[in-house]
Write a protein that binds this DNA or RNA. Structure first.
Lengths: 211, 211
DNA sequence: TATTTTTTTAATCAAATGATTAAAAAATTT
DNA sequence: AAATTTTTTAATCATTTGATTAAAAAAATA
């Protein structure tokens, strides 16, 4: 245990950071149960004892990663949706681009987040509720106003979100399925995802077109 | 070990079936690593030794469940898509309804299948390739012909599949996320999924509308 | 009833796994 | 250089976990 110090705990960010990065990589890819503490130690290039020296347990280390991954995942949409003085269409464009870029750089993130949300009922998620709530209410108002003005068709916010997220994020979650069904290589998949940056907003527009 | 018998191994379907059902429930819900053989024995109301008596190992039992779950999952789309003399629009309608009904009855199936497809590179999936291939080729031809006739807009088959599956299946995978973001109860969620039986085909039509 | 099959009970293994400890070595700070 | 902190090494624990075994009990079959 790090003894109390007068100035600061002095984390060299060396070994501790290596462990955390190894844990992030493995946990994000394989989940809690499939990763052994010895795997993390090996991946980090340190020995097992050091893992328990810095982080008290596997569970604490995992919780840390969960929080950070969740944060990164929701942050992407929050940042774009909470921008003011921007139309819904523009927000959709920005959200789609931001998510496709972010997930392309972190391919395992969506599955990890979905799995976590299925396993932990609320707990950690409830923590970020205060951050999400105002953003959500703000956006809901904007959506309703656009519908009242007849700019877009009547649609329940749930369906709007489900469609936006489904069209944007699902392809990454369903990647193995979609690749097999449509016979697409990894390279082609990447290119297709880049295409969707333009296409998804167009499709959303088609869905929202007032009749 | 069951000794060789003259007539038949006589499986009473009693204990053996109870074990399999318990395994299906737990594995489908929690995955391989999170489920212990003792959990299965307890859930089945039998003792641990019997599990290894009938099925030689945890892994064999799991593989069996994987195959059955995968089959159920792809069967749903194959049955509807391989019907002949039916338009694309009609097939979309049928696929959407079949999937929403099937997943409503088996809520954990989509996540389970997606996780498996991420974990096992090919193996089991390759087994059902011969079944899928003709169905896929047949449908691809139908799609191309419809595009040539100008009935629908130009769209890559990958995008078509990603959109169809994304709009239909994703809401179940993203259920915890979507519920939290839009403040929807379990009851409301069910009702919304029923709504989507009508809505998704309409949206797909809007996406495919020739311009 | 006698025989065979199925199921239970209970004990036990071996390996994996999360965690701890103590002592030494290396690095950093004072 | 001395003191402190960080990291390694290596041994060890206790628990969990998948699997096995042998003997008895229960059920089914001949």
């Amino acid at each position: 245990m790090a003894k109390e110090k007068t100035i600061k705990p002095v984390k060299d960010a060396s070994a501790e950071e290596k462990i955390k990065e190894a844990a992030r990589k493995l946990f994000t890819q394989k989940g809690y149960d499939a990763v052994k503490t010895r795997d993390i130690a090996e991946e980090a290039g340190i020995n097992l004892a050091l893992l328990n020296y810095y982080f008290r347990s596997k569970e604490k280390l995992f919780d840390m990663i969960v929080i950070e991954n969740m944060q990164q995942f929701v942050q992407t949409i929050i940042l774009k949706i909470s921008e003011s003085n921007i139309s819904i269409a523009e927000k959709v464009e920005k959200v789609v681009i931001a998510y496709i870029d972010m997930i392309t750089a972190n391919p395992y993130l969506p599955m990890f987040v979905m799995n976590q949300l299925h396993n932990v009922p609320s707990e950690l998620v409830a923590k970020m509720e205060p951050v999400i709530k105002p953003v959500r209410n703000n956006f809901l108002k904007q959506l309703e106003e656009a519908m009242e003005r007849g700019e877009i068709a009547q649609i329940k916010p749930f369906h709007f979100m489900a469609n936006l997220v489904g069209l944007t994020i699902f392809p990454f979650i369903g990647k193995p399925l979609l690749q097999r069904v449509s016979g697409v290589s990894d390279e082609e998949f990447k290119a297709l995802m880049q295409e969707r940056k333009k296409l998804v907003p167009i499709w959303i527009k088609a869905i929202l077109a007032p009749k």
